[in-house]
Nucleic acid binder design. Structure first.
Length: 310
DNA sequence: AAAATCAGCAACCGCGGTTCG
DNA sequence: ACGAACCGCGGTTGCTGATTT
C-alpha cells in the first residue's frame, strides 16, 4: 500500500553539489521544466534525492535569482514585511523578486537582526529592547533571539566592524546595564529610531510610537475601502498572510504572475484593488517600484492594474 | 606566520499539510 | 478510508573564507 519511495537513500549523494551535478540539473529543467521532483533525479541521472534537487534549484540555480548584495531598500522592505508576517520567509521572499526564502532568512539572521538590535529594537517583536526584555524575551528562547553560542556575547550585540562602517554612536541607556550603540539613520528614509530614555509607562508608549515607521500602517485590518466592498478569495482568512494579500501585491508588474509562487493567484485576483507593496511601505520612488502605476490619494497609494499578459 | 575566532551561506533536518496508490 | 510518500517551509548545522589576536 502507498507510494513507492522516490529514491534509494543508500545510493544518494549528500553535501555540496558539484558543477557536473548542477549542470545536469539545469539541463534537465531546461528541457523538462520544473515539477515532479520525485522522478527528476532518476531522469536527470543524478544521485540525489528529489528534495535535494528542488532545494538546489530553488535556492541557487534558478536563472531569475538576483544573487547580489541586498540594497538598503530591500533591507527596509524585509524589516517591514517581517514586522507584519514574522518568520514567514517564503511569504517575504514572494514579495522580493529574485530573492529566495533561504537567502532572506540567512540575511536576516546575519545582518538585519544585528542592525535592529543596534537600533535598540527587538528583532522578533520590532519593539524597543528595553520593553521586550521582560515580556517578549521571556517567551522567546534565547537561541532564537540570537545568536549561535559560538558567537561571543559582545558580537551578539555589537559588531564593531559594522559600527565603524556605519553611523553608530555609543550611548548609555538609563535602564540598561551596559552601553549600547545607536544606529544613526539620517541617511535612511522613513523610519525613526530615536532610542530612548522613557521611564514611565506613558512615556514608554510615546517612545514606542517613535519606532514605528510613520509611513507604514501596521494595522492591516484598517482596510482601504475597495477591500471591504469586494472581498476576494484572499480576504477570507484573518491570518497575516491573508491580511497581507488583501492589501499588498508585489510591484514590478511585468513578471508578477510568474514570480510569486503560491500566492500568485490570489495576488492576481487582488491586484486590481490592491496597493503595490513598495508604495505601501514607502518605497514608491525606488528602483524596484519603477513600473509602479500607483497614484497617491491623500497619502494612500492606489494600484492601477497593468495588463498581466501584454 | 600560525592559531583562534568570526561571519556568511549552502545544505540538511524535521515537521505539517497534501497527494497518491 | 487508510497509510506512505511528496512537497514546501522554518529552523539548524557545518563548511569555508576572512579577520583578529
Amino acid at each position: 500500500m502507498g507510494r513507492a519511495p522516490c529514491c534509494e537513500k543508500a545510493h544518494t549523494n549528500k553535501g555540496a553539489w558539484t558543477k557536473e551535478e548542477d549542470q545536469r540539473l539545469i539541463d534537465h529543467i531546461r528541457q523538462q521544466g520544473e515539477g515532479c521532483w520525485r522522478s527528476l533525479p532518476k531522469t536527470a541521472g543524478l544521485l540525489r534525492c528529489g528534495k535535494s534537487c528542488r532545494l538546489r534549484w530553488i535556492n541557487y540555480l534558478r536563472p531569475d535569482l538576483k544573487r547580489g548584495n541586498f540594497t538598503q531598500e530591500e533591507d527596509e522592505l524585509i524589516i517591514k514585511l517581517h514586522s507584519l508576517l514574522g518568520n514567514k520567509w517564503s511569504l517575504i521572499a514572494g514579495r522580493l523578486p529574485g530573492r529566495t526564502d533561504n537567502e532572506i532568512k540567512n540575511y536576516w539572521n546575519t545582518h538585519i537582526k544585528r542592525k535592529l538590535i543596534s537600533r535598540g529594537l527587538d528583532p522578533q517583536t520590532h519593539r524597543p529592547l528595553n520593553q521586550t526584555t521582560t515580556a517578549a524575551s521571556a517567551a522567546t528562547p534565547a537561541s532564537r533571539l540570537d545568536l549561535r553560542n559560538r558567537s561571543s556575547p559582545s558580537s551578539a550585540v555589537f559588531d564593531h566592524k559594522t559600527i565603524k562602517n556605519n553611523k553608530f554612536e555609543l550611548l548609555k541607556h538609563p535602564k540598561m546595564e551596559h552601553e549600547y550603540y545607536n544606529y544613526n539613520i539620517e541617511s535612511e528614509a522613513n523610519c525613526s529610531t530615536t532610542t530612548g530614555s522613557g521611564t514611565t509607562t506613558e512615556e514608554d508608549q510615546k517612545q514606542q510610537n517613535k519606532y514605528k515607521c510613520s509611513d507604514l500602517n501596521l494595522d492591516l485590518s484598517i482596510g482601504l475601502e475597495p477591500f471591504q466592498s469586494e472581498p476576494t478569495r484572499a480576504s477570507s482568512g484573518n491570518s497575516a498572510e491573508s491580511r497581507l494579500q488583501r492589501i499588498i501585491v508585489p510591484c514590478n508588474s511585468n513578471n508578477n504572475h510568474q514570480s510569486f509562487g503560491r500566492v500568485q493567484s490570489t495576488a492576481a485576483v487582488a491586484v486590481a484593488q490592491a496597493v503595490c507593496v513598495c508604495c505601501h511601505v514607502g518605497f514608491q520612488s525606488s528602483e524596484a517600484c519603477s513600473n509602479c502605476q500607483c497614484t497617491n490619494n491623500n497619502g494612500f497609494y492606489r494600484f492601477h492594474r497593468p495588463a498581466l499578459n501584454p
